[in-house]
C-alpha cells in the first residue's frame, strides 16, 4: 500500500458506510466518485439539487440528454423509480432533514465541525451553489479530502481560516490518511493507515485528536 489513499480509495471508504436505501447527496467534483463504489447489496438513492431522485450512471457518449443532468451539469441517467421535482422541493428535502447523508469536498474542516469549502478568499468571482444549504439537514454530513493541502499544510484544523460554508455541521471526515468523527468539538480518530504512527498522523493534523482505545486500520483495495 502506498503512503496515502488515492481519491478513488477515499471515495471507496466513504461509500462503505452508506446504508442500503439511504438517500444521499454527493457534492460536485470529487464526491461524485463515491457513487461508483457502493458495496454489493447496498443500493443508495442519489439526490441532485436540480430536481432528480434516484439517478444512475452517466450515459454513453453521444447518448446524453441535456435536460437530464446533475448539479455538476453532467449528463446522467435514471434508475427505475426516479422522480423529478422543482428546486424548492429539492432543497426542502435538504433542509427538512430528509437526506441521510451528504458527502462534500473541503478546503478546511475544523474540530468543531465548521466547514470551509466554497471560497478561497476575495479574489475572482465568488460562487456558492448549494453547499451552504447541503451542510444543514442531512443526518450525516461527511467530508472527503486529502489530509493535507498541496503544500502539505493541514486541512483538519482547530479553526477555519477560509470563509465558512457552515458552522458546526460536519460529522465525519474521510481523508487520505484517516477516518475521524467530530464529537464534542473534537476530532476523534476512528481509523488510520496501518503503516502510519499516531504521532506522524498528529503531526499533519492541525488540531489535537482524541484517541479512543480502539483505532481501526484504514485499508482500501487497489482501485
Amino acid at each position: 500500500m502506498s503512503a496515502k489513499l488515492s481519491n478513488a480509495q477515499i471515495a471507496w471508504r466513504a461509500a462503505q458506510d452508506i446504508e442500503d436505501g439511504a438517500y444521499v447527496n454527493l457534492g460536485i467534483g470529487f464526491p461524485e466518485m463515491v457513487a461508483k463504489f457502493q458495496p454489493p447489496g447496498k443500493q443508495a438513492i442519489f439526490h441532485t439539487e436540480n430536481g432528480v431522485l434516484n439517478f444512475g450512471e452517466a450515459p454513453a457518449e453521444g447518448e446524453e440528454d441535456w435536460d437530464l443532468i446533475n448539479a455538476g451539469k453532467k449528463a446522467i441517467t435514471l434508475r427505475p423509480g426516479a422522480a423529478f421535482f422543482h428546486h424548492a422541493d429539492s432543497f426542502g428535502m435538504v433542509r427538512g432533514g430528509h437526506l441521510d447523508v451528504a458527502i462534500l469536498g473541503t478546503y478546511e474542516v475544523a474540530e468543531n465541525g465548521d466547514l470551509a469549502n466554497w471560497s478561497t478568499g476575495p479574489k475572482g468571482v465568488p460562487a456558492v451553489g448549494g453547499a451552504m444549504d447541503l451542510v444543514h439537514g442531512a443526518k450525516r454530513v461527511a467530508v472527503i479530502t486529502d489530509h493535507v493541502t498541496k503544500d502539505g499544510k493541514p486541512k483538519l484544523v482547530k479553526k477555519c481560516t477560509l470563509p465558512l460554508t457552515g458552522v458546526g455541521c460536519v460529522t465525519r471526515v474521510y481523508t487520505s490518511l484517516a477516518v475521524l468523527d467530530i464529537e464534542g468539538g473534537r476530532f476523534v480518530l476512528r481509523e488510520k493507515l496501518p503503516t502510519m504512527s499516531v504521532a506522524d498522523l498528529q503531526a499533519v493534523t492541525g488540531a489535537e485528536m482524541v484517541l479512543p482505545d480502539q483505532i481501526g486500520d484504514l485499508v482500501a483495495p487497489e482501485l
Partner: peptide, 28 residues
C-alpha cells in the same frame, strides 16, 4: 445560496415576505 434562492422565489410567488433558513448562518 441555491436553496435560499429557490425558497426566496417560492416565497415571492406565495406571498410570504420573509422566512428563516439555516443556510449561511455564521458565514459571510
Amino acid at each position: 445560496p441555491q436553496g435560499t434562492l429557490a425558497e426566496r422565489i417560492r416565497a415571492g410567488g406565495a406571498g410570504i415576505p420573509a422566512f428563516y433558513t439555516p443556510a449561511s448562518y455564521g458565514t459571510d
